[in-house]
Design a protein around this nucleic acid. Structure first.
Lengths: 252, 252
DNA sequence: CGAAGTCTTGAACAGAATCAACTACGGTGG
DNA sequence: CCACCGTAGTTGATTCTGTTCAAGACTTCG
């Protein structure tokens, strides 16, 4: 259908891939507020880029990966699997996200990571990044700041899961993703690429795919959102905010 | 009823309060692995202790507290309130916990804290602790380690909320609290003080008090747990682990 | 065009919520 | 010492949100 939108995601990047200095990821996490020299060093540490197709598991729970990535293009997510197959999605990685920074401290991953779309990764060696961080006391401050933000996000997420209705949950997830994408310049007004299947939404919010379908059906029929192929548009932001219980901020 | 158990919590502490050097909190969070000199310094920074009765709100969302505490005795919890009154409990503070370390970075709290039992707090000035941390690059590493542990806890917590049944959730909460208490030497075998009302359990796990009552009723009647006054005993650990879906670790 | 994957829709069902009455208990005060 | 009160917990009846099962329709893509 609207392949042009996929193009708008992948086309410009091929150019940008040449250098770290104008990468969006620089504003995030470990890499925020780096001095010019440090950017050069990070660029030196980068072992190259890697393309991975959609729906591939790129990191598996209980492993100890030797590589850490920055997501340049595309979407991925992080999840836990229960022994009986139930899946809980924990975080969506958007362009600029670091995957998985937690490796810097923990010996093994307690979650897996899977791509949602075709993806471009910047590849680093865990050892290199560890050394980079250890050499710079400042880095731990930044990492703390990063964890703190994530902790706040998760407090809101837990509240969503524990206390919100299906409609509130779904409205909040959509608004939240829109906000994160807009911050990265990846939304045109209220339209953005939306590669999640309803199964993902279900496994994020503690619902079943069927119920997600029904609930999103309501939002669509009432004219709050519109979905054309891979593009989601928020057509009535005010009402969406109301349904999301707007007073308290969306889990970020 | 069994007031002797409450005594065993409060009696020995009066003695210990004299010095930081044998406080359990030293092993946790910010204070872990301090050198002797640093312990002295922390002790110098301590502005004294404070007793607060049960059920008092000690920190309110949207405030910027000037004080930070260490919980010496008793239980407290941290929660978020939705505009319509729904409450989500996020964390239980047990003796030795720091409340609320997040103040070190964020300007305002996004949650409130309330005591569950009578409580003894060690009081510090936020400014003093901030300076203490800023002066010591090591402190940020420790804080990162602390955040990392908490992040893992929350990943499990989210999975519990999203994907587990009421019985699994409750079994896991009980096992988790037991584990945390046992680690602190506050459990006698499988018995421990349990000051939570069913309303708290409900607001932790996304259930209603009525349903908590029914579900715990099942666990009691089947002989997995026993409750006498404020004392909970896990009478069949193996079966509790099974009900909790033991394979994956309890959210810690 | 066909096949696989995804979404929608309906009908029956289940787990949990809601409403409400009743019980047990610990503390308080007469 | 007992009666009373408020808080917490139990239990039952009913309702509702969300689940399960299943069939059909729509996409996407080779």
């Amino acid at each position: 259908m609207s392949d042009c939108i996929d193009d708008s995601e992948t086309q410009p990047t091929v150019r940008r891939l040449l250098s770290c200095s104008d990468c969006d990821a620089r504003k995030l996490a470990l890499y925020q507020d780096l001095k010019d020299g440090e950017v050069k060093e990070i660029e030196r540490l980068r072992r190259g880029t890697r393309h991975v197709p959609a729906r591939r598991i790129i990191l598996r729970a209980n492993e100890t990966p030797a590589e850490i990535y920055t997501l340049r293009e595309g979407w991925a997510f992080r999840f836990m699997l229960l022994p009986d197959g139930r899946r809980q999605i924990l975080t969506y990685y958007l362009p600029g996200s670091s995957i998985p920074y937690e490796v810097l401290r923990a010996p093994r991953l307690h979650f897996s990571v899977q791509t949602l779309t075709d993806v471009t990764l910047c590849v680093f060696r865990v050892e290199d990044i560890k050394r980079f961080v250890e050499d710079r006391p400042e880095a731990y401050r930044r990492l703390c700041f990063f964890y703190e933000r994530r902790a706040i996000m998760f407090d809101h997420f837990v509240t969503d899961l524990g206390k919100r209705t299906a409609q509130e949950k779904i409205a909040r997830l959509i608004l939240n993703l829109h906000e994160r994408l807009a911050r990265r310049g990846l939304a045109r007004d209220f339209s953005f690429t939306f590669p999640l299947r309803q199964e993902h939404i279900a496994d994020t919010l503690g619902l079943t795919p069927v119920h997600v379908s029904r609930t999103m059906g309501v939002l669509r029929h009432e004219g709050l959102i519109d979905i054309q192929g891979q593009t989601l548009t928020i057509t009535n932001e005010l009402e969406m905010l109301r349904r999301a219980g707007m007073r308290s901020p969306v889990h970020g």
